Amino acid sequence: MTLENSLMSSAQRYAKGLGGLFAMVLLAGCSSAPNEAAAPKPPTVEQTAPVAQACDANAVQYAIGAPFDEANVATLEEQSGATQVRVLRPGTAATMDYRDDRLNIHLESNDMIEALRCG
């Protein structure tokens, strides 16, 4: 056996050993079963949060075209059944999240009420 053949076979043996070790590590990671005792139980009806009262924008449509001031926010909130009010002026950035219990008051540039929507 020449030195070149001896080195080649050593390298091949080393590569095969690493390949086998790699395969064992992969299989060991796949073989463990999940611990079912650690998983949380799904919520029951008693554990869920209460459903918020939905907003009714139809009840306040009379205010469209009226001038807006901070004093009528409480009135619009109460009459619509909303638990939160958001005032949106032209060019105002707003999140796109939908909230069943929120009244959105859309204003024109002259602070006149343009639209009243829930969401």
Rank of each mutant, 00 (worst) to 15 (best):
M1N: 10
M1A: 13
T2P: 10
L3T: 14
E4Q: 13
M8L: 12
M8F: 08
S10D: 08
A11N: 07
A11L: 13
A11M: 09
A11E: 11
Q12D: 11
R13P: 00
R13I: 06
Y14P: 00
K16P: 00
K16H: 13
K16D: 15
K16M: 10
G17F: 07
G17W: 10
G19A: 12
L21C: 03
L21F: 11
L21Q: 08
A23S: 13
A23E: 11
M24Q: 12
L27D: 02
L27A: 15
A28D: 02
G29K: 07
G29P: 01
G29W: 06
C30Y: 11
C30R: 06
S31D: 05
P34F: 08
P34K: 07
N35K: 09
N35G: 05
A38C: 04
A39R: 11
A39Q: 12
P40L: 07
P42N: 07
P42E: 10
V45Q: 09
Q47K: 13
T48W: 11
P50I: 10
A52F: 04
A52C: 04
Q53W: 00
Q53G: 10
A54W: 00
C55M: 03
D56N: 14
A57H: 05
N58L: 11
A59N: 08
V60T: 01
Q61W: 09
Q61A: 10
A63N: 02
A63G: 01
G65H: 06
F68W: 04
D69E: 09
E70S: 14
V73G: 02
A74M: 07
A74F: 06
Q79K: 14
Q79I: 05
Q79L: 13
S80D: 04
G81Q: 01
G81Y: 02
T83K: 08
T83C: 01
Q84S: 15
V85H: 03
V87S: 03
V87A: 03
L88I: 15
R89M: 06
P90N: 07
P90V: 13
A93D: 12
M96Q: 14
D97T: 14
Y98C: 05
R99C: 01
R99E: 02
D100V: 12
I105A: 01
I105V: 15
L107K: 11
S109C: 00
N110H: 05
N110T: 09
D111K: 07
I113R: 00
E114C: 02
E114N: 13
A115C: 03
A115L: 07
R117E: 15
C118R: 01
C118L: 03
G119A: 10
G119F: 04
